[in-house]
Nucleic acid binder design. Structure first.
Lengths: 245, 245
DNA sequence: TTATGTGAAAGCGTTCACAGCC
DNA sequence: GGCTGTGAACGCTTTCACATAA
């Protein structure tokens, strides 16, 4: 990814990834403020609305430029404009979704996408019962048409919501056709060439991280003498465990 | 959150957050290996399967203990056991879902939860047409019963998939009843007391981060003289923009 | 000889604290 | 007086490189 980012190097090079990930949060906080007719805001107030430290907010904004007024704060509209431009609000992004199970269908209907400038222009699935179905006015295409659908829509961003086994295959075909940004909901590590950006959202993993903390709160990862076997852990492992003692 | 973590301090204190977030990834890679009847694996091979650096993998595992054999590698089953215990695989976690729109319903049906030891024990929604519906054998309760549902099930982990405006209110009620881990899909910053862990999944934000990178690849955040107004950006902002020049 | 486990070094990200400007 | 913008300090994460053990 590093070589790819060097290759790009546009006008404003070198905004840290961590900052980029927070820009959308600021953007939402700001639009909410605007709806309340608040025109000016200080870094500490905006920071609280965004759930971050005020020093962090100022540093983040400083990467974009000096858009505040000392002694006063930031002009909400102007800041929205400047951050919005960075995040690509000045254009509509065509997006295609591959895999229309429960999750894929929910994503296709998700209002949070269209309200932020993303437009689902195509959907693709293997299951014959899905193909031909209409979601939000767009017809689901067959997986075989994946290539023509991409070139036809010109989408550079794709969402993968297939079962894990299919994900890498689909990914390869997407990249082959020029997709350069992928949001991956499949529980697999995707391998992509330089220049392609992948973000992974693993719902099971998120819960497992919570479970880790939960266990800690309850009294730690007890290295108890007798293991309690449950559906969560495959049976043969329980046997293995006892053998190890 | 820091004071909360100090208060906990169980047996194995001080595994870095970044490591914890990767444990589930290792766990899945390992279980896949086991299904292929691979019993032993080196750090570099496992690292590749998990999509990380081999030095990173070794360092991560070293926080849990010395479970490898020098010159050989790791015993897959034993490692699954050890990591699994850390992540809480040794027990079933009851989880409740609040908000059963498209996303909430998809989550309720999501197989990746149950396969990892999470059991949806209750679901809650305000909409009368949702209440009483059965998903995976569990009936959707009315929002008014939220408190009794939590105490009845003893769930410590909750998923919020409500509209943004309702999220903080629901969150407060959850915390009030003893929920200490929350997975938040609502596009809002949640405020919680110390001792409560929140993880946020913002789907729109993920796409915006991709859009940022996409824009960079296409040639940068053009500070172009004429702004192209689109549905993505509210109209009044376009006016503002021109006025600023 | 091979591959783990781990101090030490390098790289990032966050926070501090204050100079600079309104 | 008040708040931004930012160098410097700090802490966390990753990577390196090698001593250590099978």
């Amino acid at each position: 990814m590093t070589p790819a980012q060097n290759r790009i190097a546009p006008s404003s090079k070198g905004i840290p990834e961590a900052t980029i990930a927070r820009l959308p949060v600021y953007l939402r906080a700001l639009t909410q403020l605007l709806e309340q007719d608040i025109c000016t805001i200080s870094s500490s107030e905006l920071a609280e609305a965004a759930g971050v430290n005020s020093a962090q907010l100022r540093k983040d904004l400083s990467y974009l430029g000096s858009y505040g007024t000392r002694g006063v704060g930031y002009d909400v509209e102007y800041l929205i404009l400047k951050i919005g431009r960075q995040v690509g609000w000045s254009q509509e992004w065509p997006v295609i979704i591959v895999g229309l199970g429960n999750l894929g269908t929910a994503l296709a209907n998700y209002a949070g996408f269209s309200s932020r400038g993303f437009h689902i222009v195509a959907m693709v699935d293997v299951a014959p019962e899905q193909v031909g179905r209409k979601i939000n006015g767009v017809v689901v295409s067959d997986l075989g048409e994946l290539e023509s659908v991409i070139t036809g829509t010109g989408a550079a961003i794709a969402v993968i919501a297939t079962p894990p086994v299919a994900a890498q295959l689909v990914c390869d075909r997407l990249v082959e056709q020029g997709v350069t940004s992928i949001l991956n909901f499949a529980a697999t590590v995707l391998t992509v060439p330089d220049g392609v950006t992948v973000r992974k959202v693993d719902l099971g993993q998120e819960l497992q991280i919570l479970a880790y903390h939960e266990q800690r709160k309850a009294g730690g990862a007890f290295d108890c003498p007798t293991l309690l076997p449950t559906r969560a852990m495959p049976h043969f492992l329980v046997a293995k465990e006892n053998e190890m003692k």
